[in-house]
């Protein structure tokens, strides 16, 4: 058969089955690469400071651990790993290159927050410890798989201008 066995639409048409896949996060959680960028975005230096501090502590406990530098570099890239000592045992973990701050806002005020460390994999994709990843302990083979991808883009950035694309093809439609 030269044709698709079936065809289906999820988003288009009158009866979309689920639109949620394309909708925005309802939770206000941002990914920041520095304390400064967090403050610049949220205007809340106290919460940013607490979140950063908590994330640093949590990173020590929940970052993936590797028995050798080579394994760590293979997973996270060159220059992204540091050594740690736990009792008589040494291991390697990725640098915390960012942190997540989840804010519960009520009337424009921060009513509570969550925080988490964020790491980069070898391809530059952000990841965080998966919920229930387990804290600390000795090196566990495959520990690196207990990470979850981070959907947020780091450091939302104020837009300075719009309308710099779309002029040449205008309203007539651009495509062929």
């Amino acid at each position: 058969m030269k044709r698709s066995r079936t065809v289906a639409l999820l988003v288009m048409g009158t009866a979309p089955l689920f639109l949620a896949a394309c909708s925005k996060e309802s939770e206000v959680e941002g990914l920041y690469t520095s304390l400064e960028s967090c403050v610049a975005q949220t205007n809340d230096s106290y919460t940013c400071g607490e979140a950063f501090k908590n994330a640093k502590q949590e990173a020590e406990a929940t970052a993936p651990r590797y028995a050798s530098r080579e394994e760590c570099v293979a997973a996270h890239g060159e220059g992204q790993c540091e050594a740690r000592q736990a009792g008589s045992q040494s291991y390697f973990m990725p640098l915390m290159t960012g942190f997540l701050l989840g804010q519960m806002l009520r009337g424009g005020q921060t009513a509570g927050f969550t925080s988490s460390p964020a790491f980069k994999d070898r391809n530059g994709n952000w990841q965080r410890p998966a919920p229930g990843a387990g804290a600390g302990g000795v090196y566990r083979p495959g520990a690196a798989t207990a990470m979850a991808p981070v959907a947020q883009q780091p450091d939302r950035a104020p837009t300075a201008s719009r309308g710099g694309f779309g002029d040449r093809s205008g309203d007539r439609g651009a495509a062929t």
Binding site: Q153, P158, T159
Partner: peptide, 20 residues
């Protein structure tokens, strides 16, 4: 919309919510 794409001060492209 292609016309709605934004540009940050450091020349990155943004959506309508300022996400890069």
């Amino acid at each position: 919309a292609i016309e709605d794409i934004g540009l940050t001060a450091d020349h990155r492209y943004t959506d309508l919510d300022d996400n890069v």
